[in-house]
Design a protein around this nucleic acid. Structure first.
Length: 692
DNA sequence: CTAGGGTTAG
């Protein structure tokens, strides 16, 4: 640092002046300037004997500049100390992240019995209690400041309310707020922050109401906290009000506030508002970019998230672990394994692969992309895991039809003493449903969840319906639905309807169909019903369904399948002839069908709507979008590469049996993600065991 | 003459 800034008569400085200069260097965190002064003091023999106030200033300097060891050495060498010596060092330890050292010093100080701790000491010690969530010590401090009267210092009151908030004692925090007069913006900020962080949202709202009623000027931290509260409450109206208030104030829209607003709008489903805040930001950091990417992700704009990342890179902003997590989850949303792989590689290269959120996102990406083996590899390589890690692996296995593996992971989770939660049991029960393990499923629902104090919800009950259906106990499933006091949604009824279709329970199916048709207008349901009637050769039923579709103006959603080859997406629509290589693709489909016919493939005519001319039916089946996509993938990828197809509807019976045989004759792994689950075709078999 | 409190993203 420029010594030229020092006074010319520097060598003759009085104690008063050195102290002032040292304070300036400490406040501006100018270590070089401080060291220069210190050096001068040493060479001019002014450091021995130790002058208390001057040494305090040096301790303060080194504490503030993150040189806590030097500060400690100076403290230890002092022959005489005062309260300031202690508090300067304690504050240093607090800010260097060693709160436990502070407690040690506090005890040593009390043992000397020379100084009474003052408000500075107590504010520092209370902050350490907040940082380490030491509630008992915090309450002891509360007792002390009450008896000594120190509680009436604003700093002490504020650190006390913050301590209670951080220890999630809402009542304690509120009682300090109410019993000690005088609250400033810090009091309110710290209490609202603590309440929001611990999920006491209605309490935070109440405190906010009181703050608004008093004359306290909001600062940027207030706004960050309050936007966080709106986010937690998912209260868009309140968010807009606060945003409006801020626009009228003089508070600067810095990175912190803007990121909080973007996050709030993103989570409230207002992506365009999020974007407009983002666009007018003066300077954007990783956090603001990641908040914007996350807003895209949460609103289903996965491609937009990936596109924005490209611009982020152009601006030279380096991604961090949160950015990678958002990107991977966007790839998961697109089932874009290729992009996901590249992001994975980048995360490894940038050194973020060992972060829990990245690992979790990787498992999710591979599971949703259809590559459960890679997901499992990531899982076993993870050094740190949380409950989300375990849940992602359990539900990943479950979606892929690996029920046993899912339950093994669940057992490992219990053994690792990670607490299962609501989501865990959705995965566990759907694994039981895959396996048709009725006894186990009911045990988990009635015994284990009860034991762990997890209230079962609709999703769990729906899994049980699926479980009973899988086991062929359709009447029990219906009984379960009638006897369980829960508001069933269309998903549960459709599960039962689907089972009627698979198990060919025509009577029950018609009964359930009436209920389902009263509840939703999903085109998939109509197709399922039409197929159910067709299977039973009840052509009148098929006609009725088609009439209903016309009446209700249900458009036949075309089947769409897509595949990713070298980061490029190819889309196929049933009976489509838009693809530039369509004639070669048709040729390939015919070739494949000819190959599997000797293995017993018989076109399943009942999958086709009945009013197609008989001789055309076989052609109709050949041109289902997943057949086109698979044929194209087989043409364009190396012989050992697995084929990944994503489809918007439920895969039909005919395609299912055709793809099984195609996997056999071509010796390929073919993974089809339909609207419900994954089908992994290998050597003539499918992971769904023909139940879907 | 010195020391103390609250910030964002899955």
């Amino acid at each position: 640092m420029p010594t030229s800034k020092l006074p010319t008569n520097f060598h003759k400085l009085l104690v008063k002046d050195t102290v002032k200069l040292l304070k300036t260097s400490a406040d501006t965190k100018n270590l070089n300037l401080g060291k220069t002064i210190h050096a001068h003091l040493i060479i001019s023999n002014q450091t021995t004997p130790y002058h208390v106030i001057r040494t305090n200033s040096l301790i303060n300097l080194y504490s503030k500049c993150g040189q806590i060891e030097i500060a400690r050495r100076m403290f230890d060498r002092m022959l005489e100390r005062n309260v300031v010596s202690w508090s300067a060092l304690m504050a240093g330890y607090l800010h260097s992240g060693f709160p436990l050292e502070v407690f040690g010093l506090f005890k040593a100080m009390a043992l000397e019995e020379v100084f009474r701790p003052n408000e500075y000491i107590l504010a520092t010690v209370l902050s350490c209690c907040s940082d380490t969530v030491l509630f008992i010590e915090g309450r002891q401090c509360h007792g002390y400041v009450l008896k000594s009267g120190l509680v009436f210092h604003q700093y002490v009151k504020n650190s006390l309310t913050y301590m209670y908030s951080m220890c999630s004692d809402v009542e304690g925090a509120m009682s300090v707020l109410n019993s000690v007069p005088g609250s400033d913006v810090f009091t309110y900020n710290s209490i609202i922050n603590g309440l929001v962080e611990h999920g006491y949202l209605s309490e935070a709202l109440e405190v906010l109401g009181r703050m608004a009623g008093e004359f306290v000027i909001w600062d940027n931290v207030t706004y960050v906290n309050v936007f966080g509260l709106c986010t937690g409450l998912k209260d868009l109206k309140l968010g807009l009000q606060v945003h409006n208030r801020m626009l009228k104030s003089n508070v600067e829209f810095d990175e912190f506030v803007s990121s909080a607003i973007i996050d709030m709008y993103g989570k409230c489903g207002e992506i365009s508002m999020a974007r407009s805040v983002f666009d007018v930001m003066q300077t954007r950091n990783v956090v603001s970019w990641t908040a914007m990417l996350a807003a895209c992700l949460q609103n289903g704009c996965f491609e937009e998230a990936l596109k924005l990342f490209f611009h982020m890179e152009l601006e030279g902003i380096m991604p961090n672990e949160y950015t990678f997590a958002v990107l991977l989850n966007s790839c998961a949303g697109l089932s874009a394994l290729g992009h996901g792989n590249s992001v994975h590689a980048r995360a490894v290269k940038s050194g973020f692969k060992n972060h829990v959120i990245v690992g979790n996102a990787l498992i999710n990406m591979y599971a949703k992309g259809g590559n459960i083996e890679s997901g499992s590899k990531v899982f076993s390589d993870m050094v740190y895991r949380d409950s989300i890690t375990w849940n992602a692996m359990i539900s990943g296995y479950s979606h892929h039809g690996f029920g046993k593996e899912a339950l093994i992971v669940f057992q490992d989770m219990l053994a690792a003493e990670e607490h299962p939660n609501y989501v865990t049991f959705v995965g566990v029960l759907s694994a039981c449903a895959q396996l048709g393990w009725v006894r186990e499923g009911l045990y988990y629902l009635h015994q284990l969840m009860n034991q762990l104090d997890i209230e079962p919800g609709l999703e769990h009950y729906t899994c049980i319906v699926g479980l009973l259906c899988r086991a062929g106990q359709l009447d029990q499933a219906e009984n379960f639905m009638r006897s369980t006091p829960v508001k069933w949604d269309v998903v549960a009824w459709r599960t039962l309807l689907n089972a009627c279709h698979v198990h060919r329970k025509y009577q029950l199916g018609q009964k359930v169909a009436e209920i389902v048709l009263r509840m939703d207008d999903d085109v998939g349901t109509y197709i399922l019903l039409s197929n159910m009637h067709a299977k039973a050769k009840r052509w009148d039923g098929v006609v009725k369904i088609r009439k209903l579709m016309r009446e209700r103006n249900i458009k036949k959603e075309p089947g769409v399948s897509w595949i990713e080859i070298r980061n490029h997406t190819h889309v196929f629509v049933s009976d489509d002839n838009k693809h530039p290589e369509i004639s070669q693709i048709y040729e390939k489909v015919r070739e494949l069908l000819a190959e599997i016919k000797p293995l017993g493939y018989v076109p399943n005519i009942s999958s086709v709507l009945h009013d197609v001319e008989e001789e055309q039916k076989e052609d109709y089946l050949s041109y289902h979008s997943e057949k086109l996509a698979i044929a194209y993938a087989l043409m364009k990828t190396p012989p050992e590469a697995p084929v990944h197809v994503i489809k918007n509807l439920r895969i039909c019976d005919d395609c299912h049996s055709a793809v099984k045989l195609i996997s056999k004759v071509t010796n390929r792994v073919i993974v089809v993600r339909d609207v419900n689950r994954f089908h992994c075709f290998r050597d003539g078999y499918c992971s769904c065991a023909d139940y879907w």
